[in-house]
């Protein structure tokens, strides 16, 4: 059983901070660091993910790249994207692991109408609960990274869990365990951000001045953080440039909800009190 503390639940009031003795204890949030500069595209993380989560190996069509599939699928949550880009006359062959980013401010959770279908734990992991998922797919629209995928048969949305089952018992995610170059690491978010900064410094010392951290502020930061050698062009890695919760989703779940409730309640109360004040329309029968 997953005993991790909960920070936010979809379509439900926030559980609030823990109280009682020991409540002041600082809980650490976790993160995954992906150093794309040392990724060799071996896809061991893809295999480990499929193995640990008991998912089938899928056969895709050959698209002229080394990429396993063109996109994530409901049963394939971890994809190395192989991208080619040209920069100042040089060809760049960029590899970047792609999966759920575990946003600090998750758009999926904001968009979800089913109580308990999406849960954000205090350690930062954003998890989907299939038993509460109704398969509406709103999370797919709320997610600025286009990560959640609807399973056509079970009608449940699936994505990377950051191995919440492993993390809750003190293990690191399966992908981390499989990485042969240590380009993937797992730990507290604080530690890994420091590690990422140190790595960026080192890269800059080597003359790779465009290096940087991908930890997009538009979603409050993420619990999956990248070191990119070309951080000025994250889109070359297949990462959105300025991801944020879409404004239509924010408007719909924010002001529109209040306005809508006001209209509906106002309609009911308004008609009721109209009756109380003016009563029904009466008529005099003038037809004889």
């Amino acid at each position: 059983m997953n005993t991790t503390l909960v920070k936010a639940i979809s379509a439900s009031p926030a559980p609030g901070p823990p109280f009682g003795p020991g409540a002041a204890k600082q809980t650490h949030t976790v993160a995954k660091l992906i150093d794309t500069t040392t990724c060799i595209g071996c896809k061991a993380c893809e295999v480990a993910c499929q193995e640990w989560n008991d998912q089938p190996f899928l056969i895709g069509a050959f698209e002229g790249t080394y990429q396993t599939l063109t996109d994530l699928t409901p049963s394939f949550w971890n994809l190395i994207k192989f991208n080619e880009a040209e920069q100042e006359g040089h060809l760049l062959w960029l590899m970047a692991k792609y999966q759920c980013m575990h946003c600090v401010d998750p758009g999926c959770l904001k968009a979800c109408p089913a109580p308990g279908a999406i849960v954000q734990y205090t350690n930062g992991i954003v998890d989907f609960n299939a038993e509460n998922c109704i398969g509406c797919g709103y999370c797919m629209t709320g997610c600025p990274f286009d990560v959640p995928k609807l399973h056509p048969r079970t009608k449940k949305v699936q994505k990377c869990t950051l191995c919440s089952d492993r993390v809750s018992v003190g293990l690191e995610p399966a992908c981390i365990k499989a990485c042969p170059t240590n380009c993937l690491s797992f730990g507290t978010r604080e530690d890994l951000l420091a590690k990422a900064e140190a790595r960026v410094e080192a890269l800059k010392d080597e003359g790779r001045s465009e290096s940087g951290i991908y930890n997009p502020p538009g979603v409050g930061g993420t619990h999956v953080v990248y070191v990119l050698a070309h951080a000025d062009h994250p889109e070359n890695y297949g990462l959105p440039r300025d991801p944020a919760i879409p404004w239509t989703v924010a408007l719909w779940k924010g002001p529109l909800k209040w306005l809508g409730n006001l209209v509906l309640l106002g309609g009911i109360l308004g008609t009721f009190f109209h009756y109380v004040r003016y009563g029904p329309r009466r008529y005099k029968d003038e037809t004889g």
Partner: peptide, 28 residues
């Protein structure tokens, strides 16, 4: 949603409830 372009979904997710509120208001 899985077959629809993102821009369409983002529009629909806003307009569907707006139209619903208007229609339900009219119904009341």
């Amino acid at each position: 949603p899985e077959t629809m372009p993102r821009a369409l979904r983002l529009t629909a997710i806003l307009l569907h409830p707006v139209a619903a509120v208007v229609a339900i208001g009219g119904l009341i």
